[in-house]
Amino acid sequence: MRIRALALRILRQFGKDRRTLALLFLAPLLVLTLMYFVFNGQSTAPKLAGVGLPEFLGAKLTAAGADLVSYSSKDEAEADLKEGKLSAIVFTEGNRIAVRLEGSDPAEAKSALLLLQQAMQPDESAEATTSSAFSSQLLVSYEYGDGTLTSFDSFGPVLVGFFSFFFVFLLAGVAFLREQTTGTLERLMATPIRRFEVAAGYLAGFGVFAILQATLIATYSIHVLGLYMDGSFWLVLLTNLLLSLVALTLGTLLSSFAGSEFQIIQFIPVVIVPQVFFSGLFNLDAMNPWLQKLSYVMPLYYGADALRSVMLRSASFAGVLPDLSILLGFSALFFLLNLLALGKQRAF
């Protein structure tokens, strides 16, 4: 009853208060530092698997800078390709060289193709006899997508998750902060409401808001912008919703440590921006491995991973369950910490 009252009040407040959420840029330093780490590494060679390749081609590919691993069976290589461990499998089909690309990262696919084309170019110094045994035409196929995936298709799912996360974080953070600065939170605490009810009321009120927002973002990007979508819409929604829950609980938690709206904005470069870099928007293979591990503590990483799996690789519920469970775990953790932080207002 009290939870419902709180949720209803939040909905009413936001129904009226259409403040535009301005995006502020306080993060240039942090962003630049992160950009440095992300882009300044040596470029990665696409990981290729060779299955029964003629020796000359293997040698040429390695010479061209490919990271080539020999597999004894194509099935084994296929399995690794599906898991995203490989960029492509190169194999022979009759007298033709065939390549099967992973396909969900267009940039990676392109560089793999380029390498192959380089390696297959007839070169004068080599013995014409061996090369001519193979046709110069490459057979190309894709594991995911059909080669028409654009970069937007590839990082679109990440953006869908990011916007859910970012706006809910900001909104919940600012709303809860105002509750503290205007004294209404203290006034709430002078009623027989439980701390749990306050936190749950916030969750319910903004939860409604988050569902609407997630639906809108997903629908718009898939149906209006034509974002590549090969999986279940419901799974996309569910993932987005869980991401918003994390954002909601994290936003309210951090607002306990902020003194003003401005200080909430200051959390953006610290809490939000790093997550963007680790969310899969950028290929992190070139990054220092211990820095890469940072992604494990970033909720957006799991949300983006689930969204990409669903949208690009039509993953099933079971496939994204680990990601979703971790998101739920983050929400539960932040929710509990919220209860503790509310103890600052009233010790019972």
Binding site: M1, R2, A5, L8, Q13, K16, E186, L188, T191, P192
Partner: peptide, 27 residues
Amino acid sequence: GYMAQADALYNELTGTQNLEFFAALYG
């Protein structure tokens, strides 16, 4: 019944809505 020195009201809501909210909190 507590009345704080600084008015703790929801500015976006109407008078009635503020009262409805607190009434619900008091059951």
